[in-house]
């Protein structure tokens, strides 16, 4: 009597649980660390590289990608947040501001990505009248230029032209006439612009003579002469010019030296200050000497 139902589960014939040789080998291969690494990293990298190389092997694909990138970049750069609409210049006199606007040819509105601030700063710093400049793009699309101008300290007369120099000797600009800057002292002579700090110090030291001071002259690109009115000069040495000038002033205050008929005070040799007299004064001097010695004229 055969049962009509399914045979019980214990009688079900199970297939062989053993893996086939191929399955076994494949599984062993998959468990090999190097192979797994190659499969996990190497194969995707290879596929990715291959697909990219294939795609870029066509000219139109390349141009499409390059154009797309450029368009996207342009789209981002021309967003209103990045646009610069106007330029504000602070700290510059009107003439300098005019010059700055002239040498910076910017067509507003322009994207801030297209502004080369470093180059613009160099360009503005190239102006003589500008000592220091700061550029930044302010909120609201404003190119802010903060300028510190050079302050003229002396007038330099060179070859019939007048130049304005600041206290460090840098050019500020041309001066049309002496009368425009009555308060500035005048220096002259070749190479005077390289020694403006010393000249400024000398002028400060010569304050007691300010009523008579006409200016300073650089002699032989080597040393200074203080030029007073009546053609008087104080010849200063190369070194310690300020000390020498102070000495001359002290002598003047002691014996009223400069008020006398003297052509020049020569202080070039510190041990031996020398006075040069004018022609009449020298004759008078000889006469007095002869009188003292009792000699006949």
């Amino acid at each position: 009597m055969q049962p009509m139902t399914e045979p019980p589960a214990s009688q079900v014939h199970r297939p062989d649980p053993a893996p086939s040789r191929l399955t076994y080998r494949i599984e062993r291969l998959m468990l090999t660390p190097l192979f797994r690494l190659a499969l996990r990293v190497g194969l995707p990298a290879l596929i990715g590289f291959g697909a990219t190389s294939w795609y870029f092997s066509y000219e139109d694909h390349r141009t499409a990608v390059v154009d797309g990138i450029a368009a996207l970049r342009n789209q981002v750069e021309t967003r209103p947040e990045f646009m610069v609409n106007l330029m504000a210049i602070d700290g510059a006199s009107s003439g300098v501001a005019e010059d700055i606007r002239e040498i910076l040819p910017i067509d507003f509105p322009v994207s801030s990505f297209d502004l080369d601030l470093d180059h613009m700063r160099e360009t503005i710093s190239g102006l003589d009248a500008v000592r220091k400049v700061q550029l930044r793009i302010r909120q609201g699309g404003v190119l802010q230029i903060d300028v510190t101008e050079r302050v003229p300290a002396v007038l330099w007369r060179e070859g019939g032209e007048l130049e304005l120099l600041d206290r460090l000797g840098a050019r500020v600009g041309p001066a049309l006439s002496r009368a425009e800057y009555p308060q500035l002292p005048v220096v002259a002579g070749k190479g005077a612009d390289a020694h403006v700090p010393e000249a400024v110090a000398l002028i400060a030291a010569a304050a007691p003579l300010s009523g008579r001071l006409r200016g300073l002259e650089r002699i032989g690109e080597r040393r200074w002469d203080v030029v007073l009115d009546r053609g008087q000069r104080i010849l200063l040495p190369e070194k310690d010019a300020v000390r020498a000038l102070e000495r001359a002033i002290a002598m003047d205050q002691a014996v009223d030296m400069l008020a006398r008929d003297i052509a020049a005070v020569d202080l070039r040799l510190p041990q031996r200050p020398t006075l040069r007299l004018n022609g009449e004064a020298i004759g008078e001097y000889w006469r007095i000497k002869a009188m003292e010695t009792g000699e006949n004229q």
Partner: peptide, 18 residues
């Protein structure tokens, strides 16, 4: 051989290494 393969494969699988 098949029985050895079965055992080795299962043990390898548990160990996660060849």
């Amino acid at each position: 051989e098949r029985a050895i393969r079965t055992a080795v494969q299962a043990a390898q699988k548990m160990a996660g290494i060849r």
